[in-house]
Design a protein around this nucleic acid. Sequence first.
RNA 1: GCCCCUCUAGCUCAAUUUGGCAGAGCAACGGACUCUUAAUCCGCAGGUUCUGGGUUCAAGUCCCAGGGGGGGUACCA
Length: 484
Amino acid sequence: MAGPQAQPVGHSVNPPYRFETTATAAECHNHHGDIESGTETGQTVSVAGRIMLRRVQGRLAFATLQDATGRIQLFAPGKITPDYDEFCALSLGDWVGVSGEVMKTRAGELSVKVERWDLLAEARRSFPDKWHGLSDPDIRFRQRYVDLWVTEEARQTFRLRSEMMSLTRRWLENRDFVEVETPVFHPVPGGALARPFSTHHNALDMDLFLRIAPELYLKRLVVGGLERVYEIARVFRNEGISTRHNPEFTMLELYWAYADYGDIMELVEEMVAHLALELKGTTLIRYGGRDLDLTPPWPRARFVDLLAEHSGLEVDLDTPVAELRSHCVDREIPVEDRWGPGKLLLELYEKTTEAELWGPVFVCDYPKEVSPLAREHRDHPGWVERFEAIVAGRELANAFSELTDPDEQRARFEDQAANRDAGDAEAMAVDWDYLRALEFGLPPTGGLGVGMDRLAMLLADVPSIRDVILFPTLRPEPPERQVD
RNA sequence: GCCCCUCUAGCUCAAUUUGGCAGAGCAACGGACUCUUAAUCCGCAGGUUCUGGGUUCAAGUCCCAGGGGGGGUACCA
């Protein structure tokens, strides 16, 4: 496994089992950053990390140590540092633990004087160029362990993602939402329109699917009396990969009893604004060089109105299907015979309107035909109370006033099952147990799904979902590359 | 799935418009140097140019097939 680059370093081959640190690089700077050049603090610390740079000048050596919090210089005079020659022989990337006095060099660089040191691990493979770092995206994704050391932006992005998750949980807990964990293995894939991954349980001799959404389980929990419930769920969809899609991704779903989709809109805009304030200090952010104002309230617009505005088409659910179909054909949108007016309207919207939106905007009220889990609109028959939040030109959240009536839900499922039989691989199957749960009574409920990876992209201002997923899905490396 | 781009030393990159001995910086290795900041200086070594075919006196370069990656598009809440 060592590979052709492996070189014995010539000292300790048996690193200690533990090393006690008393300070981080950041703490050194915070506590002692303002001392005079050429002075010593009289305070001894133990720090640990990787050697990122090294400057040996005869009987005096300098090195730059990087830990999780930042960088601190090591100051190693030959008269003081034990095993001085071996210290000078450290490779870039080696892990060391160092103890010594905090001081500042004549040139004004805060440093730890190397009075004791231990080699904690060797870097037997060469680290990337100390100045240019890594630019090959293949290596950055496959060898994230290297990327994180050499690419400061990568460290910042993943730290931001972690803080975003933590802030989200706290924000929801403060509103009495309860976090739960529901099954990843689903006997019936449901809760979204998507192709699932399938697997098999040997002992039960049962086919199972990796979840495409936690929705139906979370609503079962509302039936069970968890009136405010959420899950930060890894979900799996057997679909394409792009800058906005990874086969496994993280979705926040929440369900709020006694609320409707209007309440959910307020929740979304407040939560996103809160995260922006905490992480960026402002709700006026930039994404991809464009301004984006996340300050609540966000504009609300109806689906049909936006469609009319961007396509120039005055169409609705009562427009004859033949006419809708010809509008699609005019725009080179492929259509299928079984599609009703709702699906045709959705296709027209996605091809003419969605790409034009920058947002933030709540696009409200979708066709019932394409929303099998949402409740019919109180004022507009044939439509449902559903919205998508479009932010920075992409869908960030999807929500609705939940369908609670078991008979209506059964009819919607059967409609989906018919589509499935007709060859629609993304259509839902009938989930009998979910219907049974609804028959025990689901109160009026508002539900929400948020793509957390996309939210992290937005707040970190990065262009690809791979930039916010530590180990994005990639093809396996070809065998000839696995040797080295 | 389709289209375009890309792949050269551990890393970052060169290699005349129009084929002509595969190079540099950093890292590594050897040496000099007691205040450096990508330290500097001297020396040394480092290659299946992604893989396999083909054209040619000659291929990193041109052609064909395959592989990895990126982008777009399609699919996709």
